[in-house]
Amino acid sequence: MSFSDTELAVVRTAAEREGMASAAWAGRQVMAVAQHVLVPVSRDAGDVLRELVQARVHLREIVAELRAVAAAGPSGAGLPESAAIVVEAALAAVVRVDEATVQVMRERRPRS
């Protein structure tokens, strides 16, 4: 494999972040792509994927907070029905974001 100076700098940075030699890191990535474990996506799809992952994390934090409120509830009585509906809606949103994230990860750039 050969890289431009800019590409090599990116590879070195990524390898250092994971405590690996550049060649080992690049080899692991190449094998992951070859084995369809890691699917390369376009820059735009990568941006969308990052947004989905951030939204997923945020939604899970909201769900955790809602569950904590539910457990505490007034006098341990739990959530009123309207709050329970909100928790279920948040859980459904997490599922939809998870599904969208997986879909973006499965999409591949056309290989030309």
Rank of each mutant, 00 (worst) to 15 (best):
V57M: 07
D98N: 12
R96K: 14
M105W: 03
T13G: 04
R96C: 01
R12D: 02
Q54G: 06
S42F: 02
A24H: 11
L59H: 07
S2E: 13
A72P: 00
D98C: 04
D98I: 01
R67D: 04
P80M: 00
V87I: 15
V11G: 01
S112P: 10
R111M: 04
M105N: 09
L38H: 15
G19P: 01
V57E: 08
R17I: 00
L59E: 08
G78Q: 01
V63E: 03
V94A: 04
G76P: 04
E16W: 07
L38E: 14
R17F: 02
T101K: 07
E61M: 06
A84L: 08
E51P: 00
S2Q: 14
M20Q: 14
A84N: 10
T101H: 07
E65F: 01
V63L: 03
R111H: 10
Q29S: 00
H36K: 13
A92H: 11
R111D: 13
V57G: 02
M31E: 15
V104G: 07
G46W: 08
S112K: 05
R60F: 01
V94W: 08
G27Y: 08
V11R: 02
P110Y: 07
S22C: 03
S82P: 00
L38R: 14
R17V: 00
R106P: 00
L52C: 07
E16I: 10
R17C: 01
R111I: 04
G78I: 01
R56D: 12
T6S: 10
L59V: 07
V97Q: 03
G19M: 01
A90S: 12
R67H: 08
D47C: 04
A92Q: 12
E107T: 11
V69I: 05
G27D: 12
G78T: 02
D5V: 04
L38F: 13
G73P: 02
R43G: 01
V94C: 11
V86M: 07
A93S: 14
E16D: 15
R108W: 02
V63F: 01
R12V: 01
G78L: 00
H36Y: 11
L49A: 08
A55H: 06
S22Y: 07
V33N: 07
R50D: 14
G76F: 12
V87E: 06
V86I: 15
E7G: 12
V102N: 11
R17K: 15
R96D: 12
R17E: 08
A72K: 12
H58V: 05
V57H: 09
A100N: 08
S2M: 05
S112R: 10
H36R: 14
V57Y: 06
L49I: 01
I62K: 06
T101I: 00
S4A: 04
A45G: 02
A64I: 05
E18G: 03
A70Y: 00
L38Y: 15
Q29D: 02
S2H: 12
H58K: 13
L8P: 00
S82E: 10
L91V: 08
Q103C: 03
M1T: 09
A45R: 12
Q29L: 03
A83S: 11
A64C: 05
S42L: 02
R56C: 03
P110S: 12
G76H: 13
R109F: 06
V95K: 13
A24V: 11
G27N: 13
V30Y: 14
A71Q: 09
S75Y: 14
A92G: 09
